[in-house]
Amino acid sequence: MEPAAGAAEEPKLRHVEKDVVIPKMMREKARELCSDKVQAFTKCCQETGFFMVVKCRQENAALKECLTAYFNDPAFYEECKIEYLKQREDFAKRIHTKQKQEKLPVNT
């Protein structure tokens, strides 16, 4: 099936971008979005010490559930992918601009 005339072509992602970089971004963003559960689990662990494995099960389960919900959400993946592609594009523009500036002749 041919793409529609004038449709923007989807940027290609390398294996490492799809399987490493974007999932890492997803984890970081999910931790921010689940910060209340991260804080509850951290507090429980600090208060209970060695017994945290037993005493913090509820907090750990809530944290895992929150993180997993984001990590398994295709819309969240797409959101992170779009953000990554924008960062990649901005980086490429900065490099291209820098290379152009280095090639310009200098009047002395």
Rank of each mutant, 00 (worst) to 15 (best):
E2S: 10
P3F: 03
A4E: 03
G6P: 08
A7F: 10
A8Q: 12
A8E: 13
A8W: 07
A8N: 05
E10R: 11
P11I: 09
P11Q: 04
K12G: 09
K12E: 15
K12Q: 13
L13I: 12
R14L: 12
R14T: 10
H15S: 11
H15A: 14
V16Y: 09
V16F: 12
E17V: 11
E17C: 12
K18H: 10
K18D: 08
K18T: 12
V20G: 07
V21E: 13
V21D: 14
I22S: 02
I22T: 03
I22Y: 06
P23N: 05
K24R: 11
M25H: 11
R27N: 08
E32Q: 08
L33H: 03
C34I: 01
K37S: 00
V38W: 01
V38A: 01
Q39E: 00
Q39N: 04
A40T: 01
F41C: 01
F41W: 01
K43P: 03
K43G: 03
C44D: 00
C44E: 01
Q46F: 13
E47N: 09
T48K: 15
G49Q: 10
F50C: 10
M52T: 07
V53T: 13
V53K: 14
V53E: 13
V54L: 07
K55S: 06
C56N: 09
C56V: 04
Q58D: 15
N60C: 03
A61F: 09
A62H: 08
L63H: 00
K64L: 04
K64H: 05
C66P: 14
T68M: 07
A69E: 07
A69D: 06
F71V: 00
N72D: 00
N72H: 01
N72R: 01
D73G: 00
D73M: 02
D73R: 02
P74H: 04
P74I: 04
F76M: 11
E78H: 01
E78A: 04
E79T: 07
E79N: 05
C80G: 05
K81S: 04
E83L: 10
Y84R: 06
L85N: 07
L85S: 04
K86I: 02
K86N: 08
Q87K: 06
R88T: 15
E89S: 06
E89N: 09
F91K: 08
K93G: 14
K93Y: 08
R94E: 11
I95W: 08
I95G: 03
H96Y: 11
K98D: 01
K100W: 07
Q101V: 08
Q101C: 11
Q101D: 04
E102T: 15
K103E: 10
K103H: 13
L104T: 12
L104K: 15
P105W: 04
